[in-house]
Amino acid sequence: MTLSIAGVAARPKTATPVQTRKFTLPLRWISPVALVLLWQLASSTGVLSPDKLASPLTVAQAAGELVADGQLGEAFAVSITRVLFGFLIGGFAGVVLGLVSGLSRWGETLLDPPVQMLRTLPHLGLIPLFILWFGIGEEPKLALVAAGVAFPLYLNLHAGIRQTDPGLVEAARVLGYSRFERIVHVVLPSAVPQTLVGLRIAFGTAWLSLIVAEQINADAGLGFLINNAREFLRTDVVVVGLVVYALLGLTTDALVRLLERRILRWRAR
């Protein structure tokens, strides 16, 4: 009898943390929602002129129109293609260079010094050179994204490989692993967590590079949409473009987190 009472009594205890969790998430939304309401209030009362910043409702309306007439979809497709190809080029370069300099002593001696020097250059400062080299078409935009992606991937992959626990490599040697097996089963897996950090940074810089690159003479894409809207004082469209940029960044970040959880599941207890 006492036992069954204890069993019943224990139940609400386990339910408590779930309840607090349910409450904390909405609580965190109070201030952002309040800010948006305040913004709407300021616009409606005329404190905030639409030439400076459109009201949330106008922005939502503009978003609806841009989606309906296909402009947003088109701009979105152009921008995402730029990031994708820039990312592929830069990612390939970063990974290949990182592997060569991480896995071979000669590779490190020859590759690491110049890469470390170049990485101190702010890559967005390369725009004038890229325009001179590649003109004002798609190429400088891809090059800028690629440059933004290659360095964080290189640095983190290289550091990850260097951080391999020598004890594990030693054990693998005594236990008869070939050099190839040591790389595949010991060195590369231990570089993965750091490389995923690099991947997240790389996506961040990729979007940043795109936004900056699309300010230069773009005739399509989200940047073009925004610049075009500026000329007509359409702050609502500008804000829509910014929100889409933000959502894209959040999406890629979430994707990497998902990938992290999947690949690093051995870490979970």
Binding site: G167, L168, E170, A171, H185, V186, P189, S190, V192, W266, R267
Partner: peptide, 10 residues
Amino acid sequence: FQQPRLLPWR
């Protein structure tokens, strides 16, 4: 070894 030195990802 003193530490098991197992590969945590295998």
